[in-house]
Computed example of a mutant assay.
Amino acid sequence: MTRRDMILAAFVATLWGVNFVVIDWGMSGIPPLLFVAIRFVLVAALVVVVPRPAASWRTIVGVGLFMSLGQFGLLYTSMALGLQPGLAALLLQAQAVFTVVIAAGVLRERPTTAQLVGVVIATAGLGIVAAGRGGDAPVLAVCLALAAALSWAVGNVISRRAGTVSGRGPLGALSLTVWSALVVPVPALALAVVVDGPEAIATGLAAFGWRPLLSTLYTAVLCTVVGYAIFNGLLARNRSAAVVPWVLLAPVVAMISAALLLGQIPTPAEAIGGVILVVGVLVTSVRRRGRSEFSLRVSRSASRSRVSAPVAETARAAD
């Protein structure tokens, strides 16, 4: 990853870290799946000004179902069941491990040694946090948060696989984000009716005041439109194993935000685990010495085809 892409990845992680506190602050009294539906109605409204991405409907629907509906439907529900924002953010980062494993099997992307070490370190930090959570988190809420992480990982791989056709620059990434949001509102609302009942939906809509509105605007505009547009662009330009671990910074931001804004002070285990997570992210950003298998294949192909030196250098830098 270039330095610019690293800064963008850290920025997205900050947006998503604060997002957990904003969701918890605004969701009070609103059924979680209804809250998800409203969020993505705002995002999907942008289809009137954003052109359709150069991707198949299968890709668009897949990203919408897994990266949006699955991830946030499960996450919001887990938080509504009592999972604190900081812990929710930490558990969701299991997606990093899930993504690297799925990408290795589906996309044949081999993580570098540094990236593998970084993921292992980050996973160890996550384990420390989980072990020191004090047993106060509902088991069902924890399981739902981990299921959300798995759904996110599947969405990551789908987005990465479509990167060559749908992620050319910020506009392509934004198009995929916006158009995939069309998949979310109707299923989310239908699930809300089934899970919470029509009466709870009516009560939630009546209680939708300025706090839920501000929370929805933050999550819809900053986190979904801006955040996922940047994130999908990063996935299109870089390997999944290089991009995804940066999101492990989000739970650190979430814990700090929860402490400052909600008075939820992390336990020593959470604090230590958070530091280890940051170390894991930094390790994954270390440039590997030598040339990867992908770079060697590109260079050999360039030599056989007598491609100019600048093109070969670009291919090496992109790995």
Rank of each mutant, 00 (worst) to 15 (best):
A220V: 05
L234E: 12
C143S: 15
M6L: 15
V61T: 10
L81Q: 06
A188D: 06
W179G: 02
G290S: 13
V18E: 12
A54L: 02
A207G: 07
V275T: 13
A137F: 13
G70W: 01
F66Y: 12
V18D: 09
L174I: 12
R133C: 10
V307H: 11
R297V: 13
T77V: 11
G17A: 11
R4L: 14
S180C: 09
T99L: 02
L234R: 05
V283K: 04
G82Q: 04
L91G: 00
G263F: 11
T112V: 06
R291N: 09
Y76A: 14
L46Q: 05
L81R: 04
E270R: 09
V43G: 00
T267S: 14
V101H: 08
A173G: 07
P212S: 01
P51C: 09
P31W: 01
T112H: 08
G127V: 11
V61S: 03
G125C: 07
G233V: 00
I201C: 08
T123R: 07
E313Y: 01
T14H: 07
S295W: 00
L277A: 06
R287V: 15
I102E: 05
L74A: 10
R237C: 08
A271D: 06
A94F: 12
A181M: 00
L144Q: 03
I230V: 15
S301F: 04
E109A: 09
F294M: 13
R211K: 14
A188I: 04
G280I: 07
R58L: 11
P85Y: 09
A250H: 08
A220C: 02
G127H: 06
